[in-house]
Amino acid sequence: MQTKRMTYPGRFLPYALLAPQVIVTLIFFIWPAGQALYQSLLREDAFGLKTTFVGFENFVRLFRDGSYLNSLSVTAVFAVGTTLLSMTMALLLASTVNRMIRSRSTYTTLLVWPYAIAPALAGVLWWFIFNPSIGIVPYMLEMVGYRWNHRNSGSDAMLLVIFAAAWKQISYNFLFFLAGLQSIPQSLIEAASIDGASPTKRFWTIIFPLLTPTTFFLLVVNVVYAMFDTFAIIHSTTAGGPAQATNILVYKVYADGFVGLNLGSSAAQSVILMVIVVALTMIQFRFIERRVNY
């Protein structure tokens, strides 16, 4: 791709224009990340009176700690569940809306609304819906003989946070899937229908393969979302419980650091998260161009 080169009259102007972004990045990203890296090598008492350099011991301890390993698997279940649920629902909605002609923009607008809701509110909303004493869903589940209680059932709690997190992300996925669907020429679908493919077959052999770039992009974005942007949802619904059943990595960083005041361990956990997010970003950049299969 050809890029247009801009030239500026002075040397000062380009740096001045870059400065705000650089300053924000330095203060809010690079500095805290450096702090976390540094702190992950220290052990500090709860009152911050004494600090000892312990090398990689914080990391070693983490991987021997059952509750951390539990948190890793909880995160994996949560991320996979949220990603699958929100992407499936979004694709379903997008292909339905894509078939509409006049009402398309109305539906699009309505379906995008949940994205504007703060994560904490989304959490509370679903907490109300699933509330064991006043919620509508447990009331209905009871009629079919299931006693929903996310306060003492780990799997119920996990389902609740997955619902809340996925629901919020559907809007985002929906927009990308809809755009992806609309960029598939109508004549391809028509050619396939003349070629004798049923609507289901058309979807799996033509539409879905052509959506691969979008799907792959969303896959990475959703995993990152589920792992890092869902703190507020967990915090407002289950607070990691019951019995650590929904204690995902990012929530554990907070709980161990700011509630448990084990700052060294918390810093080490955030360094691990940092490594994960860097890895995911690299996967995205490396494969996003190549995975386009046409």
């Binding site: 020429p185 004549s187 028509e190 393969p209 052509l210 691969t212 046409y294």
Partner: peptide, 8 residues
């Protein structure tokens, strides 16, 4: 008109 070949 635009051939509509399956690109993948």
């Amino acid at each position: 008109q635009n051939y509509a070949l399956y690109p993948h």
